[in-house]
Simulated assay, not measured.
Amino acid sequence: MAAGGFCKLPNGRVVVALNLPSPTALETSGVRVLVHAQNRARALTRLRNLGLRAVYLRGNAAPPTPDEITAVLHHPDGLIWRTAQDTKVLELWRPIRSLLRDAAA
């Protein structure tokens, strides 16, 4: 289960943001994952197909910010992540492949 939210875009597509526990021991604060998809169900299916099976979106408590929406729309995969920190330290968004590769190692 995860906290998160979504934002519907003018073209009908959605951006889903989820706060997940980190799959690696390197990240203690968890990760924030952004997914751009046709609808919420497809966004969650994209994550489940990558091996994140227990991912659900209940409510809209933590929707994506405008900066997050811009970041995921400009990424070719439409699926990015970074650590979920409470501080205002600027951290770059990374492709989901790097998170899954770190978790497998």
Rank of each mutant, 00 (worst) to 15 (best):
W81I: 04
G51M: 09
G30D: 09
L99P: 01
L90N: 04
Q38N: 10
D77K: 11
P10I: 08
Q38C: 08
D86E: 08
P63C: 04
A25M: 10
V35C: 14
P23T: 07
L100C: 04
R101D: 12
R42V: 02
A84S: 13
P63M: 08
K8A: 08
Q38H: 14
R58A: 11
V15L: 09
L9V: 08
T70K: 01
G12M: 10
A104K: 13
L18H: 01
A3H: 10
L79G: 01
T28K: 15
R97H: 09
P76T: 03
L34G: 04
R97P: 00
L44Y: 09
R32N: 13
R48G: 05
W93M: 01
H74V: 00
P21L: 10
L47R: 06
I69Y: 00
A61L: 08
G59D: 08
V35R: 07
V89N: 07
L57S: 01
A104T: 05
V15I: 13
P66W: 06
G4D: 07
Q85S: 14
L44D: 06
L99Y: 04
R46L: 13
V15F: 02
S22A: 15
R82N: 08
A37R: 04
E91T: 12
K88D: 14
R40M: 13
R48K: 15
A41Y: 10
V14A: 09
K88L: 13
R40W: 02
V16D: 03
S29M: 12
R53I: 03
D86C: 04
R42G: 08
A25D: 10
D67V: 04
E91P: 00
A2F: 01
N11M: 05
N19E: 14
L9Q: 14
R97T: 12
H36M: 02
L99N: 03
R53P: 01
R32T: 14
L50K: 10
